[in-house]
Design a protein around this nucleic acid. Structure first.
Length: 267
DNA sequence: ATGGTTGGGGGCCAA
């Protein structure tokens, strides 16, 4: 039996507390009609997650990996999936990954990488050390992946010059330092991942998914970074038919500091 | 070179 491929709207979004932002999510769902929502920083334990709320909106299939106060990821889907499981990089018990197998056989990984703290020095800043070790483990993991895979999430690194508002001014700022961007390159190479966003928007153009809450006017100053990503296995090349950053949602009431990234993908 | 804002949870921490 062969399945007829169909297009699904896949979204990755660091929501910065799913319970606090249900109105924002509701507006997004009504406006953009996603089929699969990958959320990060849900900040909800699994028994506190608003499962029923999502079910009422057609997301019958859910894979949760939450913890108290921090981190937390979730996949909410109108399409059935199988085999939810998690990876615990750095063995710290952090809720930073959940995966499911989609109809058609591709494995979807939803990742929330460590932010890394303020000082980009692994000797003095344990959070930055953790971030580097986290990526080292991801690189080893990614090199062994067999199935066609989709990796999405908040990876907290902006790899290219035009993934930040000022390359020169951010070279020593966590998220764009050379030790981080080199690791992201190594991670891309470890599975020959396709950086789908940069397939659609040339490297010469600025492309951001995150803007600090601290700016007076985030859109006017536009000091953004591309921290959120959608990557594909080489065998899935060409399956993403359209891609955009949901800029609108960054400007809605009580926004997340991240905008959703929206891809229409043939599964 | 610094400050600016946000949410969770508990009386500050992480982002």
């Amino acid at each position: 039996m062969s399945k007829i491929p169909s297009t699904a709207r896949l979204v990755t979004w660091n929501i910065n507390s799913v319970r606090f932002r249900l109105d924002l999510v509701d507006r997004f769902i009504r406006g953009f009609q996603p089929d699969i929502l990958c959320l990060q920083e849900t900040k909800a334990q699994d028994d506190q997650f608003p499962l029923k709320w999502f079910e009422e909106r057609g997301f019958k299939y859910t894979a949760l990996h939450g913890q108290k106060s921090y981190h937390g990821v979730a996949i909410l889907s109108k399409l059935p999936f199988s085999g939810p499981s998690i990876v615990d990089w750095c063995s710290m018990g952090d809720a930073r990954h959940v995966q499911v197998t989609l109809p058609g056989g591709a494995v979807l990984h939803n990742v929330y990488a460590p932010a890394g703290g303020d000082e980009p020095n692994p000797k003095t800043n344990p959070k930055f050390d953790h971030k580097l070790r986290f990526f080292d483990e991801m690189i080893a993991w990614s090199a062994k992946l067999q199935a066609p895979s989709i990796l999405v999430g908040d990876l907290n690194i902006a790899p290219y010059e035009n993934d930040v508002w000022s390359h020169k001014q951010l070279l020593k700022v966590v998220s764009h330092t050379p030790v981080e961007t080199e690791r992201m390159m190594a991670l891309l190479e470890s599975h020959d991942w396709i950086d789908v966003m940069r397939d659609f928007v040339p490297k010469e153009e600025k492309l951001f998914t995150w803007w600090s809450y601290r700016a007076r006017d985030w859109l006017a100053s536009n000091k953004g970074r591309r921290l959120d990503h959608i990557w594909l296995s080489p065998s899935l090349k060409g399956t993403v038919q359209s891609l955009r950053v949901g800029l609108d949602a960054r400007g809605w009431e009580k926004p997340s500091d991240h905008a959703p990234v929206i891809a229409d993908i043939l599964l």
